[in-house]
């Protein structure tokens, strides 16, 4: 492990989650530094999405084991998901969760809500602050849509978008919360090769232009190996390897996890299926 000199922007330690008797995640640890683009991979059911849910507060990590999730100096343990989003940790969902009846534009505008400072009464009275912020939000949302090539469909309802566009909209929406760290849960699932290539470019561009740190779960090994600088591999809730793509690819435990040990049934390596 090569540690960078600066303090990590997201530091995770001793995070575990048990559902009944099932240990979904055990001692998950992670360090993200500003501007990192890290991958989180593992076979189906390895606990990747559970990790995301733990980080974003959907689940609470098991208490009393020294659990620690620190984003830019702020502890996130025990905060509700909306507080965590406000602190600057945003995510997309593996099974797309757009606001189907809202327009594409409103989907993105909603995500700006976390930065809104005018009050509900201000909204009713349409104060100067309200109008100004609404204008700024619309401008920002259109900018994001343009970046994700969704601007000509801004008025359509989210549920009418084709699948690939819905995935892009999810990323745009997550970015609209102005996050410090962005968690992408299988952003390329269901995309065709052409779309995947574009997505890879887009993710890099987002990282550079928006100055965010990205952690992504992905089953498409080509994409992960291509864009991620570091990769963490999970299996049965445990971290079995961590390092550069080349390092991880060569790790025998990773190969075993994906291809199975001699006495295990072979499992398909990288499908677009859900974890």
């Amino acid at each position: 492990m090569t540690l960078k000199a600066s303090a990590p922007i997201l530091e995770v330690r001793n995070v575990s989650k048990t559902f009944g008797g099932l240990k979904a995640v055990t001692d998950f640890a992670l360090e993200l530094h500003k501007g990192d683009l890290q991958g989180l991979i593992g076979p189906n059911g390895a606990g990747k999405t559970t990790c995301f849910n733990l980080l974003t507060g959907v689940y609470r990590p098991d208490a009393g084991v020294g659990e620690r999730i620190v984003l830019d100096g702020q502890s996130l343990v025990g905060l509700r998901p909306s507080r965590i989003a406000a602190q600057g940790l945003s995510r997309t969902f593996q099974n797309i969760r757009l606001f189907g009846e809202l327009s594409v534009l409103d989907n993105v505008k909603l995500a700006c809500h976390v930065r809104v400072t005018y009050s509900m009464l201000g909204g009713v009275l349409r104060t100067a602050g309200c109008l100004g912020q609404e204008a700024a939000i619309t401008e920002r949302a259109m900018e994001l849509l343009r970046l994700f090539d969704l601007h000509d469909r801004a008025a359509e309802q989210g549920r009418h978008l084709p699948y690939g566009a819905q995935r892009r909209l999810e990323i745009a929406r997550a970015l609209a919360t102005s996050p410090k760290v962005l968690l992408l849960d299988e952003p390329a699932a269901g995309m065709n090769p052409q779309e995947k290539v574009e997505l890879a470019k887009l993710i890099r561009r987002v990282r550079d232009e928006f100055d965010v740190t990205i952690l992504l779960i992905e089953h498409d090994m080509g994409l992960v190996m291509d864009i991620c600088e570091r990769i963490t591999v999970l299996d049965y809730g445990r971290t079995i390897a961590s390092g550069t793509p080349a390092h991880v690819q060569a790790d025998p435990r990773v190969i075993q996890a994906y291809l199975g040990a001699v006495d295990d049934e072979p499992a398909p390596a990288a499908g677009g299926t859900h974890a």
Binding site: S82, D106, K109, L110, C112
Partner: peptide, 26 residues
Amino acid sequence: RIKNSSYGRALISIREDEIASEAMGV
């Protein structure tokens, strides 16, 4: 006016998907 403010969008997002809404900071 509520419907057309950020607060209205927040309310509607709860109807559409409560988990996503919470994850987006509502």
